[in-house]
Deep mutational scan, measured.
Amino acid sequence: MTGIVKWFNADKGFGFITPDDGSKDVFVHFSAIQNDGYKSLDEGQKVSFTIESGAKGPAAGNVTSL
Score class of each variant (00 low, 15 high):
Tyr38Ser: 11
Val5Arg: 00
Thr64Met: 13
Asp21Ser: 08
Thr64Cys: 13
Glu52Gln: 11
Pro19Asp: 02
Asn35Ile: 14
Gly61Trp: 11
Thr18Glu: 08
Asn35Gly: 15
Lys46Thr: 08
Trp7Ile: 04
Gln34Trp: 08
Gly15Met: 02
Leu66Gln: 10
Ile33Ala: 03
Lys56Phe: 14
Ser53Glu: 15
Phe8Gln: 01
Lys12His: 09
Val28Ile: 07
Leu41Val: 05
Gln45Phe: 05
Val63Thr: 02
His29Met: 04
Met1Ala: 09
Gly44Ala: 05
Trp7Gln: 03
Gly3Met: 01
Ser40Arg: 13
Ser53Gln: 14
Ile51Trp: 09
Thr18Leu: 12
Lys56Cys: 14
Ala32Gly: 08
Ser40Gln: 11
Leu66Tyr: 09
Pro19Gln: 04
Met1Leu: 15
Asp36Met: 11
Asp36Ser: 11
Ser40Ile: 13
Phe8Cys: 02
Asn9Thr: 04
Asn62Phe: 11
Phe8Glu: 01
Ala10Ile: 12
Asp11Cys: 15
Ala55Cys: 12
Gly54Gln: 14
Ser31Tyr: 05
Lys12Gln: 09
Gly3Phe: 01
Asp11Tyr: 15
Asp20Cys: 13
Ile4His: 09
Phe27Met: 04
Gly37Asp: 10
Ile4Gly: 03
Gly57Pro: 07
Asp25Met: 06
Lys56Tyr: 15
Ala60Met: 01
Thr64His: 14
Val63Ile: 05
Gly13Asp: 01
Pro58Tyr: 10
Gln45Arg: 06
Asn35Ala: 15
Gly57Ile: 05
Val5Phe: 02
Lys24Ile: 11
Glu52Thr: 13
Gly22Asn: 08
Thr18His: 07
Phe16Met: 07
Ser23Lys: 07
Val47Pro: 00
Gly61Thr: 14
Gly37Cys: 12
His29Tyr: 05
Ala59Trp: 12
Ser48Pro: 00
Asp36Val: 12
Val63Ala: 02
Asn62Thr: 10
Phe16Glu: 03
Phe30Ser: 10
Ala55Lys: 12
Val47Asp: 00
Ala59Val: 15
Val26Ile: 10
Leu66Trp: 08
Thr50Val: 13
Asp21Pro: 03
Phe8Ala: 02
Phe16Ala: 03
Gly57Glu: 04
Thr2Pro: 04
Asp36Glu: 15
Leu66Lys: 06
Leu66Thr: 09
Gly61Ser: 12
Phe27Trp: 07
Gln34Glu: 10
Asn35Thr: 15
Glu52Tyr: 13
Val63Cys: 03
Ala60Ser: 03
Ser23Arg: 08
Pro19Trp: 04
Thr18Arg: 14
Asp36Gly: 15
Gly13Met: 03
Thr64Val: 15
Gly3Gln: 00
Thr50Glu: 10
Tyr38His: 13
Phe14Trp: 15
Thr50Arg: 09
Ala55Met: 13
Ala60His: 01
Asp11Asn: 13
Thr50Phe: 10
